[in-house]
Design a protein around this nucleic acid. Structure first.
Lengths: 343, 343
DNA sequence: CGCGTTGATGTAATCGATTCCACGAGGAGG
DNA sequence: CCTCCTCGTGGAATCGATTACATCAACGCG
C-alpha cells in the first residue's frame, strides 16, 4: 500500500505538507497543493484510516448493537441509522446480539476495543457491568428502542401507550373480552412496558389481565408459537392474542394454523411492530406501527451531538395503531383508525 | 484510556513484557506473567485494536457489501456471515448498497480505507473500477450470491437451474401455458441467469418466453408492482408471474390485490428466494429456496482461506423448489416436490 | 573452570498518519 | 533600512501497540 511518504516523495514535499493538503489546512501554497494532488492521483493514494485514528483518537465510527437482525423492525432501524450516520460523516458497525446477553457483551467489547466514537444500544438485558462501566467512564452512548433504567444515557424510543389503548378499545368494540398477551423478556423495557400498557388499557375498559393470559416470550418466533399453544390449551382460551413483537406474531400464526383454527373467526391476532408483510398475510394483521426510521435518525443525531460536544436529548415518538382484518370486522381503509398517542 | 504503558508501570515490567504476556509469547516468567495479568485486571486494561492493527497490518475484520439489507434474503446471509466470521476470530462490517452502484462504491472505499483483511461482495452492477482494481491489486475478495464475470475472484453462490426447471414443470403440469417473469437488473448475474434458466426450462416444455412477458425489475418491491401492472394491462395477460426475488413478489402481490384479482385463481405467483413469511401470505407462496446460511458460511471460509494463505475454492450449492398454493392445486405437504439440482 | 546455549527481559525502531515548533522568506509599517 | 508579522514549509514527536536486537544471568558440558 502506498503511504503518505510515497506521496511526499512523488510530489517533492514533506509529509507534513501532504497531510496539510489532505486536511485542507489553509497555509499551503497553490503550487504545493497542486503537486500533492497530482501525486495522490498518480499513485492512487488513499489515507490509512487506521493510522489516522490512532493519531487523532477518533474513528468516525459508531457502534450499533441490536437485539436481532432477523427481525425486520431492527433491520429497518439499522438501515436508517446507517443512512443518517453516513450523512453526518460516520460509518456504522452493526453487532447482532441475537437476544443473547453474552453475545451482546461480545459485541460491545469488540466495538470498544476498536475505539468507536460512540455506541447505540438496544439492550437485550438489564445491562452487563461492561456496558454500565463504559457508560460511566464516559463512552458516548445512546439507548434506542429499549433502555436500562437508572443509567444516565439518553433514550430514543417510541411510546406505545396511546396506540395500545387504541388497540384495546378497538378490540373491546368488536366484542372481545378475553384478551391475552405474549410478552417479551422481563429484562427488557419493551418487554415490560407493553404488558403494562396493555394491562392499563384493559383496566380502562373494565377488563383485567389474569396471569394465565400472559405468555412469556423472548421476542423470537418459536416462543410465540409455544405461548399460543399454551393459550389454546386453556379450558377457556382467550379470544385475542396480542404479540409484543412481529416475530412472536408469526409464531402465533403458525400455532393457530397448526390447530386448523382460523383468524379472526376462531381467535383474533394483533402485533406490536408493523412490517410490510403484515399487509399480505392471511389475514392481514392489525399492528402497532413505530416510526422506525425517525427513531434511528433521532438516535444518531443524539449520539453525534454527544460525541461532538453538544448536549444530547432523549426523544420519545408516538406509535400508532394500524387496523387490518386479523381482529375481525373489515376496516374501511388501510389507514390508522386514530392516533391518540402523546409525544 | 489506559495503555500498555500504564500496565507496564503498574506491573513493574517493560511494555515488551506486557505485550508478550498478552500475545502468549512463550518466554515470559511465571512471575512476570502473574504480575502483568494482575495489573491488567486492576486497571481494566483492554488493548487498543487500532494501534495493534497499524503495527501488524491486520484488522481481523471482513467487509461485507450487500445489495439490500431490507431484503430478508440478504439479512439472513449477513447473519450467517457474521456468525461464521466470529467463529473464525473475525469481525464483520456490513455495507448496504441499496442496489445503488455509487453507494456500493462508497462502502467499498471506506472498507478499504479501514484496511479490512478481506471483502465479501454481492455486486450491484458490473463492477466499478475501484472494486476491479482492488481485486487486481490483491485485496482478498470473494463474491457471494452475485458475481462479476471475467474477474479472478472465487464465487460462492446457489445454482437455481434445477429448481427453476422443477418450477416450470410444476406450472406446466397445472395447465399454465403463458408464463411471465419479473427479471432483476441485467447488470447483475442473478438478474440475467434467472431469466435464462426460466427461458430454457420453458423451452424444454415446448413453451417460449416472448418479450412482453419479461418485466424489467430492480429487485425492489415497487418495480415488482409496476411490472405486474404492465402484465395485467396486456391484451392477453400471463397466467403465471414468476418474480426473480422475494421483494418483487411482494410488489406483484400488491398489484394483483389492488386490481381485486385473486391468487392463484386469476393469476398464479411464484418467487425466487424463500422467506419465512411466504408460509403465511395469502395464499402461501411457492418459492425457490436457497441454502442461504450455507452460502454465507462457505463464503467466509473461502475468504478466510484466501486471507490466511490457503487456496480458496468457489462453491456452488443447489437451490430447491418449495411448492405452496400460489400456483394453484393444494400440495400434499410443505416439503419440496423434488430436488433435481446438480451441485 | 571456562565457554556456549538458553531463557527472560529491556531498549528502541516501526507502522502511517497528525501536529507542534522552528526557520527562512517576503511584506508591511515606522 | 530595520523590525516584526505572516505565511509556507520541513523536522521531529506522538499515538499504542509489536518485535528485532542487545543484554545479562544461569546452566550444562567437556
Amino acid at each position: 500500500m502506498t503511504s503518505i511518504k510515497d506521496v511526499a516523495a512523488e510530489a517533492g514535499v514533506s509529509v507534513a505538507t501532504v497531510s496539510r493538503v489532505l486536511n485542507e489546512h489553509p497555509s499551503v501554497s497553490a503550487d504545493a497543493r497542486a503537486r500533492v494532488l497530482a501525486a495522490v492521483a498518480a499513485l492512487g493514494y488513499r489515507p490509512n484510516a487506521v493510522a489516522r485514528s490512532l493519531r487523532t483518537d477518533q474513528t468516525h465510527t459508531l457502534g450499533l448493537v441490536i437485539s436481532d437482525v432477523l427481525n425486520p423492525y431492527f433491520t429497518e432501524l439499522a438501515r436508517s441509522v446507517e443512512e443518517e450516520a453516513r450523512a453526518l460523516g460516520y460509518s456504522v458497525i452493526i453487532g447482532n446480539a441475537d437476544e443473547r446477553p453474552e453475545l451482546q457483551d461480545h459485541h460491545v467489547r469488540t466495538l470498544l476495543d476498536r475505539r468507536i466514537d460512540g455506541l447505540l444500544v438496544s439492550p437485550t438485558d438489564g445491562g452487563s457491568p461492561l456496558m454500565l462501566d463504559a457508560a460511566r467512564a464516559g463512552t458516548p452512548m445512546v439507548f434506542v428502542d429499549r433502555w436500562i433504567p437508572g443509567v444516565d444515557v439518553p433514550v430514543v424510543r417510541a411510546d406505545g401507550r396511546g396506540a395500545v389503548r387504541d388497540l384495546v378499545a378497538h378490540l373491546h368494540r368488536l366484542g372481545h373480552r378475553r384478551l391475552a398477551i405474549i410478552a417479551g423478556p422481563a429484562a427488557t423495557t419493551t418487554g415490560q412496558e407493553r404488558v403494562e400498557a396493555f394491562r392499563e388499557a384493559l383496566a380502562e375498559c373494565g377488563l383485567d389481565l389474569p396471569d394465565r393470559y400472559i405468555g412469556q416470550g423472548d421476542f423470537q418466533a418459536a416462543s410465540g408459537r409455544r405461548a399460543t399453544e399454551r393459550f389454546l390449551d386453556l379450558a377457556e382460551p382467550p379470544q385475542v392474542v396480542f404479540a409484543a413483537d412481529n416475530l412472536m406474531a408469526l409464531g402465533a400464526l403458525d400455532a393457530v394454523r397448526a390447530r386448523g383454527l382460523r383468524v379472526p373467526e376462531d381467535i383474533a391476532l394483533a402485533a406490536f411492530d408493523d412490517i410490510p408483510w403484515f399487509v399480505h398475510t392471511d389475514p392481514p394483521i392489525t399492528a402497532i406501527a413505530q416510526p422506525t426510521g425517525e427513531l434511528g435518525r433521532a438516535a444518531v443525531r443524539a449520539l453525534v451531538d454527544r460525541i461532538e460536544g453538544r448536549a444530547p436529548r432523549s426523544v420519545t415518538l408516538p406509535a400508532r395503531l394500524v387496523v387490518r382484518r386479523s381482529c375481525g370486522e373489515s376496516p374501511v381503509t388501510e389507514t390508522p383508525v386514530t392516533n391518540r398517542s402523546q409525544s
